[in-house]
Design a protein around this nucleic acid. Sequence first.
DNA 1: CGGTAGGTTGAGCGCATTCAAGCGTTGTGG
DNA 2: CCACAACGCTTGAATGCGCTCAACCTACCG
Lengths: 276, 276
Amino acid sequence: MLSTQIATAAHVTLASTLATSTQGPARTLLRAPALPVLKSDAAANQRASQHVAETLKLLIEKLAPQRRVVHAGDLVYQGGESFGHLYVMTSGFFKLVNLSADGREQVVGLKFRGDWLGFDGIANGRYACDAVAMDTGEVLVIRYDALFAACAAQPALMTALHEAMSREIARDRDSLMSVCTLPADARVADFLRYWAESLARRGLRSDQITLRMTRAEIGNYLGMTLETVSRSLSKLARAGVIVFAEKGRRDVQIPDVDALSEFIQHCLAPASPVLQ
Amino acid sequence: MLSTQIATAAHVTLASTLATSTQGPARTLLRAPALPVLKSDAAANQRASQHVAETLKLLIEKLAPQRRVVHAGDLVYQGGESFGHLYVMTSGFFKLVNLSADGREQVVGLKFRGDWLGFDGIANGRYACDAVAMDTGEVLVIRYDALFAACAAQPALMTALHEAMSREIARDRDSLMSVCTLPADARVADFLRYWAESLARRGLRSDQITLRMTRAEIGNYLGMTLETVSRSLSKLARAGVIVFAEKGRRDVQIPDVDALSEFIQHCLAPASPVLQ
DNA sequence: CGGTAGGTTGAGCGCATTCAAGCGTTGTGG
DNA sequence: CCACAACGCTTGAATGCGCTCAACCTACCG
């Protein structure tokens, strides 16, 4: 048992030999010291968190936007609806869901405090997906035309807007890379890593996270079935990389975020260097 | 033989019954009339093509940008390089390649005339991927600070910029949906459909396309191996949805773009309604 | 004409899916 | 208060899609 699986990783073109050599002495998932967060990250997270707060303050001061409170399941906007507003989250968790013409449903993004919602609507004048609240939260409601006008006079606003869009583009590409190059176990680990990092960057505690998504939603987001998600989480728990809370399986403790990265590398290792 | 495969499609949550009923009388891949493009699409393509031309003209007039000619293999920018410019394609074909810290390589985007390159660099001040020319082409070199300043006085510029970013975000999500919800054969068909549509929207002929990517590159982009790409293309050719040029397998004829969509639906069909 | 890169196809295997059973938690109504 | 249904989660067994490995082919180029 403890069936350590060989990397699947659809087509790793070049430099895959590198991945092997950089992995170090193989299999050190359970580390003794386990410092909760790297110091360098802590500083970066502090800055990122402050940056989010400043951007929110800027928007509130310059645009005096309406605020809208949402509860789990509420739609901020819906695919097909005519575009007019952008939304900036001050709290809560959202998912973005694409719906194809033939009825396929796909979670294409997860959003946290400070993130913007609605960029997909600018180009075509209609929103291209649903923005669904996964918990109680609040968004700033920003009229696009008002923002557009304000940008001309307030460079800081335009900077904030462009930064947010740029970050979203970069993040979407990382998602695609994760789905395309990682086997199921590593994808789940990467998902947890991303979630923890997202919380950390916003100044929230990241060692104990509450997944607000069902296994089915996670699976949809990661391109796998809910059973595979469940199995991967169990495997992560067995490896000690995550710890489930006593009651219920929605809460996940992450003693050491770096162990998640190591687990991913372990999944990508071509073959078991030592024994399994 | 002619092993028509059942749908894999990782997790199609709801409304998947719809997909079945909307498919019509099942299996009509080879249609007699085969009009090259739907009339409604033709009008939309005309408009889109004109819109691209107008945007390029606007940029040239307002910013008098440098032009840069590139050849196959040239890098417009490279991941890690410090950000300073955006680029707008006037001709050619580009791919965007992400490189992860551990050496995984992933094609995360394909770009055509009128598309912008470099958005990923705005947020962090460094480009997050490589932009590689796949053919001879030309880009407008646009200093971001100059564009930023010009946007304040020229709303049309800001509109063009935001539209381009929005379109990119929406497109990236479609890519993710394709990778997550479609089986290999359908993914290849969707890739061809996207490529043909991209050409059509720019006023280029879309019934005869020259793939400027190797099977390995296509496979990387779609999250599968080059062998699977080859097999899927062969299957599409056997079904008559595409036709290979006599000499070489890089040129692909697409007699009827809609047949590609039908093929995708066929791949998604829960089970063979009639016989296989 | 040999060398190389890209492409096709077959055989076998394995990861992830499908199908299925069982468990824990929550919520509702008798 | 307790059945009982509904929902989410876990785990096992079997199947199959897509991957790996391999051989062979074509086109291109020095």
